[in-house]
Amino acid sequence: MGKKVKAIVLTGNGVNCEMEMAHACRLAGADTVDIVYTGELLAGGKKLDDYHFLNLPGGFLDGDDLGSAKAGANRFLHGRVREKEERLFDQLLRFIGEGKLVLGVCNGCQLMVKLGLLPAFDGNYGRQEATLTVNDSGRFEDRWVYLRVNPRSPCVFTRGVDRLYLPVRHGEGKFVPMDEAVLDRLEKNGHIVVQYSDRNCREAVMDYPANPNGAIRAIAGICDETGRLFGLMPHPEAFLHYTNHPRWTREALPEEGMGLALFRNAVEFIRGKNG
């Protein structure tokens, strides 16, 4: 029996998937799951240090008014705990430094990429190497997509997972790397965890709507070098039960939704590591 697993689901300022994200953590077996407002972290009443697994859910941080998650990233970088002590970002870096897990979904993924937590080459957390920008269609869309999972990726969350079918719900999900060199390195070192794909989850695709946003190399999610930080645009917490599947009334499906595996892997990893 391993150590107790404590998950934190960060919310507030426009985050809106905290409930289902917390539900996923509970279903996956986390012993403690707290939904915590960023305001509580800034007020000092809660600390990231007390947890093992940080969930950054989807939503619209500050309305995505300055570009997705931009104002949210600014709050991490410049918001200080109790207005004077450390920056929230310092707390986050300490959390990462202790080998803990971070999962960012949709707006959470945008936040991680724009804070430079992903891909964070050479462990250089805080340097932005890529971005997520307006979908090629110019519009927000809610649609389900097939994902090819990279078996070579060090990602902790996708161990043993070879395919995913999940909804995307975003207007700014097009992954764009800084340059070719970044792209090559992402590819070479297995940072690319999930890609939009054909129905068989084998081939990455660039065609709309299978690739819903025109993401470069069909990238839907990336991890850092350790595989402990993972951000993806599709929503695993939106498919926890078979009745979430858009065709559950016509297909035979297992009880458990495909998204849950990612959370189980996270909880098992923490338990194993700390056991």
Binding site: E20, H23, D142, R169, A238, N244
Partner: peptide, 9 residues
């Protein structure tokens, strides 16, 4: 499609 019809899980 342009409305999120499945947030809240």
């Amino acid at each position: 499609r342009q409305y999120d019809h499945e947030v809240q899980g």
